[in-house]
Design a binder for these strands. Sequence first.
DNA 1: TCCCAGGCAGGGC
DNA 2: GCCCTGCATGGG
Length: 213
Amino acid sequence: MKPLHIYYKLLRHFGKQYWWPAETRFEVIIGAFLTQQTNWKNAEISIENLKHKNLLDPNSLSTSNRDQVEILIKKSGFYRQKAKRIIKFSQYLVNKYGGSLDKLFCGSKENIRKELLSLEGIGPETADSILLYAADKLSFPIDSYTIRVCERLGIRELQYKKLGEFFKNNIPRDLEIYKELHALIDMLGKNYCKKKPLCCRCPLINECIYPKK
DNA sequence: TCCCAGGCAGGGC
DNA sequence: GCCCTGCATGGG
């Protein structure tokens, strides 16, 4: 079963997800930090808290008080690390690019990715999420849901890099499809593919695993 | 009570 | 290179 086939099945089943839910690209990035190993709803509350304090822009966040930020983002967990990291990211953006994401995103995808990965708190998944949803670059994020769903589908290459290549080689180079497919896989994983029990109750995924001949 | 949530960094080996 | 652990809160 090809990823594109799965994409259309999921799209029919769940409808469009319209990821990433955010008003600005900067908000996408901060959300990407905050949602790490955390339920999106709690990350969203933290985002709203920052927004209400007018801290959701590079200049304000870069000069904000860390104790205050820690309190505002507490609900999304790991709040000390995350407060430090989003403030540091903002400072980096302001100091190197005058706070302009256009300037940060103006180079090649590969170079932007390397630069993002060099920053504290940005690993492969967060870098690819930022590239796809904030920079509009064709980069497919592999998160725990993606790995879980691919396990169910019997896809062997489960390491981040190989799985990324797998998607890259099997879906059209289309931003809309990249964005929606990642979101749809998360929707599927979130609802139907919990780690336990191992047997999957979702008819859709079962059909993917055992396609009709 | 236990497990999990849209990971990452740092250490050991 | 892979594997383990700390990071922290909230919901089911």
